[in-house]
Design a protein around this nucleic acid. Sequence first.
DNA 1: CCAAGGATCTGCT
DNA 2: GCAGATCCTTGGC
Length: 195
Amino acid sequence: MPEPDPAGGPGVLAEARALLGAVLHGHGVAVRITEVEAYAGPLDPASHAFTRTPRSDIMYGPPLRLYVYRSYGLHHCANVVTGAEGEGEAVLLRAGEVVEGLELAVRRRGTEDPVRLARGPGNLCSALGLTLADLGADLTGARPPRLVRGRPPSPAAVLSGPRVGVSRAADRPWRFWLAGEPTVSAYRRSPRAAP
DNA sequence: CCAAGGATCTGCT
DNA sequence: GCAGATCCTTGGC
């Protein structure tokens, strides 16, 4: 059950912070999450759940399920649904550090640079082997994909800023990452975002 | 039905 | 810094 963000705002902001440091076990590879973005459903013009459609329906379902979508035809991006049923809140997993299955991740990604293996939401899915076949997966089950939470990071260890590449609500600082992590992806503002 | 527009990534200039 | 790949979802007509 989500609680209000300490700083005020939707509960998904606190959920996003709390996912930092958690380990997502994919197919033969596991990643420690270092960067995420919060998407606040109907309150958030940048969210796929801003309008409820067949695609975004999964985000309105029960929490701790995986929302996977295809981006630019080539890549997959993965979100953890965090809101209670009907809220439409989810957290995009943007980057992580491979902590298991290094060889397989290297093979899937075609690079040996550990920093690049799971940097960026598309690359993170690629490293973990996540596809649309994982859409709706229960992350609390015994089989992967599976989410293992650790201690939430201290507020001082978390930095925040605007979300990458969104054309609407481009100034909301709803991207969160662990300070000092080399795996965190670079910020890029959408060319379509208002100046 | 059709056109537009991506919560991206890579590689080249 | 910028364009291209590539295809699905959405919304307007």
